[in-house]
Write a protein that binds this DNA or RNA. Structure first.
Length: 110
DNA sequence: GACATGACGGCAG
DNA sequence: CCTGCCGCCATGT
């Protein structure tokens, strides 16, 4: 037996650490967890996070700032609504000024 | 065990 | 920036 936390539980922790008015990418979380290149696993974990945890998965988008996971939420609008409610402008399912709102756990959480 | 799919990302053209 | 291809690892059939 090991005391290490499961990969998706680590994703929950990092996701819950994302500051408000900030977003991050799957690859950034994956790299921070040492799973660099396995960004798909982050998305897999977050898909469970939406219904299986209280982590703000809506703050995680792909490397283009596109809200690819909105169809995993209760409604296709939920993700965008939550982000806009936090002050993040969304247009065409994409985060505006993504580079400015980007939060890298490997650098800022350091 | 093989094959296909998935909230992705990097690289080449 | 866009398109195409491969790598990544867990899950479902």
């Amino acid at each position: 037996m090991k005391n290490e936390i499961s990969f998706f539980e680590q994703v929950y922790e990092v996701t819950k650490l994302i500051p408000k008015h900030r977003v991050t990418s799957y690859g950034a979380i994956a790299a921070y967890l040492g799973a660099k290149g396995s960004a798909r696993m982050v998305g897999w974990a977050l898909s469970s996070a939406v219904t299986h945890s209280d982590a703000p998965a809506h703050r995680v988008v792909n490397h283009k700032g596109l809200l690819t996971g909105q169809h995993h939420f209760a409604t296709p609008d939920t993700m965008q609504q939550l982000l806009e409610a936090e002050g993040i402008p969304i247009s065409d399912h994409q985060v505006q000024d993504f580079d400015k709102f980007f939060w890298d756990p490997a650098k800022e959480l350091l």
